[in-house]
Simulated scan of single mutants.
Amino acid sequence: MLWYGLLVAAVAGERVAELVVARRNERWSTARGARFYGQGHYPAMVALHTALLAGCLCEVWLAGRPFLSALGGPMLAVFATAQALRWWCISTLGPRWNTQVIVVPGLPLVTAGPYRWMRHPNYVAVAAEGVALPLIHTAWVTATLFTLLNAALLTVRIRCENQALTASATPTAA
């Protein structure tokens, strides 16, 4: 369990690093006239992602979930792949990446990197991570609850993001 706790702590550290990057990128975007969208769902997203990390540890510890190598090994591979995809998205978007929906009007859609093949690859990474991280140590309740709640949240988030990107591509009357 110690190594799993260290893994979850490393993910928490990664999330803090993402927030630092997001804050820097927010300043970059704001300096270029950015518009903010979907502020209402952002606290729920933060709470859900925090609950994922807490749930992983609590379920393993309180329910005595065992590590099963036949499940944990493949889930660790899925988790690592999701992390690679997440950072590919972040590096592809550069200063336009953020944890919030922030759009600089007039900038073209990004069509490089993973965005060549899908519109929202970061959410694929989030969904994969939300299943894989808990299942590395058989925390199936956490994996199930996160997946269901994340699906509902992503329905709102993706709709908001699509509307924001559409609005930013449409020229505004001066």
Rank of each mutant, 00 (worst) to 15 (best):
L153I: 04
A77H: 12
A151D: 02
M75P: 00
L154N: 12
L93N: 15
L71Y: 09
N98Y: 02
L133F: 00
A125V: 11
Q100M: 15
N122A: 15
R96F: 13
A152V: 06
V104H: 12
G130Q: 00
A125P: 10
W117D: 07
M75L: 05
A125K: 01
Y123H: 09
P95C: 14
A139T: 00
V131S: 01
G106D: 12
R96V: 08
W140H: 14
A151G: 06
R116K: 12
M118F: 13
I136D: 02
P74K: 07
A143R: 01
A143I: 00
T99H: 12
L149R: 02
T142K: 04
P108H: 14
V101I: 14
T142N: 07
L93A: 00
L149H: 04
A112T: 15
W97M: 11
Q83E: 13
R86F: 07
L135E: 00
T111Q: 12
P114Q: 03
V104Y: 09
N98H: 10
T111R: 14
L135I: 07
S91L: 13
V141Y: 00
A77P: 05
V104K: 01
A132P: 01
L133S: 04
V104C: 12
A84E: 15
V156W: 05
L109I: 10
T142H: 03
Q83V: 08
T138N: 04
G113A: 10
I102K: 09
L148Q: 04
T111C: 12
W140T: 10
W88G: 00
A128S: 03
I90A: 10
H120M: 14
T144Y: 04
A80I: 06
G72C: 05
C89K: 04
G73W: 12
N122W: 08
L149W: 05
I102A: 11
C89T: 09
W87Y: 13
L71C: 15
V78E: 06
T99L: 14
L93C: 15
C89N: 12
L153C: 07
P95M: 11
R119L: 09
G113R: 00
W97K: 15
L71F: 07
W97G: 01
A80F: 11
W117P: 13
V131Q: 01
A80H: 14
G94N: 05
F146Q: 00
M75G: 01
F146Y: 06
P105S: 08
A77G: 14
A84Q: 13
M118G: 14
S91Q: 08
A84G: 12
C89I: 09
T144P: 05
